[in-house]
Nucleic acid binder design. Structure first.
Lengths: 335, 335
DNA sequence: CTGTTAGCGCTTTCAT
DNA sequence: ATGAAAGCGCTAACAG
């Protein structure tokens, strides 16, 4: 049987409450007393019982990560970040996959809240933009932090200036001589679709290149939409010399379709994506992309949340820096 | 405030214990009583409090998934499977990433067990083969199930006959006319290294092809080891016409290196991998590989574990079927 | 088949 | 700065 708080209290010659104070880092414990308690606890190999703590404290000491699997890599990075943040706070993490296209996903979220009572939530895109879900969360009074947070949807989280990042990458590609640059957009349910599209438009405008609507085709952040988009663009009357795919999956679809047609990359066509997934280094040619430090963002979001839970100080939205990754899929414009 | 078991008992005109029986699907409750309890609970929107349940029942109602991130996709699949299994049992899942190369990973595991007291564990490779870790688990008395279970390491879990799968794939490639087939092995810490190598040897033997040790080079399940292995093999005096890479990551490295040298795939070189990761469909040319239904395996392993936890019936090791995925990276041998 | 009683190990509240 | 007492909401053990 593991040692209980009572055992530690007895052995240290103090009350249970004092031991509790020490373990919860509460004030009003003499340093000397604290030392004794910690040492005795160590000797007895004491670990607070999480269930008892939760029950008595009326908190679950659990944070819930809700996601709608956009990509495994992305979610695993976020998971890692959230776990990192939880570590230091003696908090656990629970996972809740949600399919935002399903009719009852909001109901399912509500049910989860009722059953498991997490003390807070971390949300990833596109759930961060799901108004019906956010409404339920706000009604429930459970605090949440967003990865990829926008101030009108969340009060805390981590964010990245995707628009600015894309504009910067556009400038780079334009400097390589490209003028006909196409864009395959992201999925409409994601806020990122608009931010990345805006960055594309900004890039054109800043270079004084006129917008050509035939160079923008709809995608959905998938490999398949990259293949389809590339087909549409490359079959057009005057095809682009460069394609900005809204994420790396889409970019891989573009690369496949281009190679399939015998085009050289980047000789005939430059391609760039967004996310810097591991795959972007593992395809041929390696993919120029924009690095989004997802793990860091997950960690920061969770930290904002935990700070709020524990200290009731409203955590804000933290801006995380991006990074351009220039690889082999982009090069000088042909001709 | 949410309804408590006491409220339900009062409203239903029964004792707390009867309500408890109903919610825990225990026997000895008249069907009529059961109905009433369930209806009243529904009306009061009652949800059992997990902490109270754990505390009183001296169980955490949590399963811990331990992994040493071989690949995000793999882990996410397993997570999905374990969550699927937990769903029906009102169990939660906690995550414990472990780095088996770190000196203190066993200690860290022990600490986790002491703090969070999961009722059972699900292990993924290569932790399934980590004798020091397994010893700690057996000492602790906490049951565990393995994904990719071997009977001498685990008493329950899910397994897949990798050896047989590889041999079957070898037969296919040999039927395409290949004789000089190389192998880039997996990481030595994984049991899979040996199983897949054995399958390769079986394949050669069954076709009466003599084993050539210069055609086997060491890898480690990484993209980079694929690149390095391909270099070594293709630079040799009489290079192979086909390469079996121990997993898809490695195979991608092989493909990249081959394309880099201007080789046509599968015209000059056939390549095949193992795992059927999403990437295998998203590279060019698409990759011939062996499908391992990881999610299903995670689910089955967790189910075996949960059955054991709840009913004390020793779960066994369940064999899961594999599937050959013939894609574009393999073709007739040149010449 | 159903109920009663006594905790589980901690935190809360209030007293000192 | 520290402690005593009273629960948190449930299940275990036993009684009927």
């Amino acid at each position: 049987m593991p040692a209980r708080i009572e055992d530690v209290a007895a052995a240290a010659g103090v009350s249970m409450k004092t031991v509790s104070r020490v373990f919860n880092r509460e004030p009003n414990v003499r340093e000397r007393t604290r030392q004794i308690v910690l040492q005795v606890a160590e000797e007895l190999n004491y670990r607070p019982n999480p269930s008892a703590r939760s029950l008595a404290g009326n908190r679950s000491y659990q944070v819930c990560l809700m996601y709608d699997n956009p990509s495994s890599n992305y979610v695993m990075e976020i998971i890692g970040g959230v776990l990192d943040a939880c570590e230091g706070h003696r908090y656990g993490m629970m996972l809740r996959p949600l399919d935002y296209t399903s009719e009852d996903h909001v109901e399912s979220a509500r049910e989860m809240l009722a059953q498991y009572r997490p003390d807070g939530l971390v949300l990833t895109p596109p759930l961060t933009d799901d108004e019906r879900l956010l409404e339920v969360l706000r009604d429930s009074g459970i605090p949440y932090a967003s990865v990829s947070a926008q101030s009108h949807h969340a009060s805390m989280g981590a964010t990245l200036d995707e628009r600015c990042a894309v504009a910067e990458m556009m400038a780079h590609v334009i400097a390589l001589g490209h003028r006909r640059i196409a864009h395959i957009t992201g999925h409409p349910a994601h806020g990122a679709r608009a931010w990345r599209l805006d960055g594309y438009l900004d890039g054109l405008k800043q270079a004084g290149i006129e917008f050509d609507s035939t160079l923008v085709v709809e995608g959905e952040f998938s490999f398949e939409s990259g293949v389809a988009g590339a087909r549409q663009l490359l079959d057009g009357p005057s095809p682009p010399t460069a394609i900005f795919a809204a994420n790396d999956d889409t970019a891989c679809g573009v690369i496949c379709e281009a190679l399939e047609r015998g085009l050289a990359i980047p000789g005939d066509l430059s391609v760039f994506g967004f996310d810097d997934t591991p795959m972007s280094r593992h395809v041929w040619p390696s993919l120029t992309t924009i690095r989004q430090p997802s793990r860091e963002m997950g960690k920061v979001a969770a930290e904002q949340l935990l700070r709020f839970i524990r200290e009731k100080v409203p955590g804000g939205i933290v801006r995380i820096p991006y990074e351009l990754k220039l690889r082999r899929s982009t090069g000088r414009a042909p001709g």
